[in-house]
Amino acid sequence: MLLSPAEKSYLYESLISDPIIRPDSRSNHQYRPLEAKTSFLPGSNGSSRIRLSDGSECIISIKTKVVKLVEESNLIDLDIDIVGYRDDSNYISNLKFQLLNLLNENFEFEILKLTEQYSFKLFIDCIIINNLSYPLSLLSLSIYLALKTTRLPLLISETNDEEIAELPTFSDDWNDSKYLIELSKNGKFQPPIFITLGIIGNNLIFDPSQEEETVLENGLIISFYNNKVITPISNTNFALNSNNSNFKGLNKKIIIGALSLGNKYCPIILEALDNLIEEDINDNDGNMF
C-alpha cells in the first residue's frame, strides 16, 4: 500500500506522540473487533472463521487421520493458502514455518495418542480470503479457536496393543466424540498463540492496521503459551511492498516492554476467545454466519 508523504508523516507523528493517537482512536493494547464463529464445517473435526472489521477473513479447517506413530515424524501438519500468493512463495512458507514450529514445540501431543502404536495426526488447513495487514496473528487466533473446538471420535478398542496387534476402532456416534480439552490429562488445553506488535518510537501497538504498518519502525512477533510469553520472539517488517523509510533497529528496552505487555494482555485475549467458544458450543447452530 502506497501512502503519500504527507499521510505518512501525519500517521507517524500521531503514533509516536505520547499519549498515542491511533487513526481509529484505539488504545495501544486494543485489538480491532473480531467476528468469529466455530464448528460450522460438517466434514471437519474442527473449524473456525474470523473476520476483522477491515474485511480480512480467515477460515480454518482441522481434519484428523489415524497414523502409525513409527511412520510419522510430525503429528501436526499445516497448510496456508492466501489468495494471490504462490504456495511456495517466501511469504507463505515463512508464515507456515512460524505457525508449525510454534505448535510443534508447544503442544500436548499426549492427547492425540491412541494406543502404543497409533495416534491421531492433525491436518490444519488455513485459507485467508482477504488480508490487508500482516496475517500471522489472525491465523494464530483462528487456529486457537479451531483447535479448541476440535473433536475426536471416541476410541472403543483397547489402548494397550503391545501384545495383540489390533487396529483402533471408534464409536459410530459423533455425540460420543471428545473435545481435545476433555482428552487432556490436566484438563486444560490451551494452544499457543502469536500476537503482533508494532514498534514506533517508544510506543508499542497491538494489532497494527495496514496503514499503521507502513510507518512502523519495527514489528515484533511474540508467542504466548502456558500463561507467559515464550520464545520464539522475532521481528519483521509487516508492511508489504513498501520501502519503509522509518524502519529501524530494535531497542532492548522496547523488547522488555513488549514482553510485559504480552504477559499482561494475552490472557485477556485468550479469555475473550474462550468466552466465544463457550457461547458457540451452547448455541451449536452450526451456522457459518
Binding site: S27, H29, Q30, Y31, P33, L34, E35, A36, K37, R51, F206, Y265, I268, I269, A272, L273, N275, L276, E279, D280, D283, F289
Partner: peptide
C-alpha cells in the same frame, strides 16, 4: 473489551 472484543457474526 478494552483489549479485544469478539462477537459472533
Amino acid at each position: 473489551s478494552l483489549v479485544i472484543s469478539i462477537s459472533k457474526p
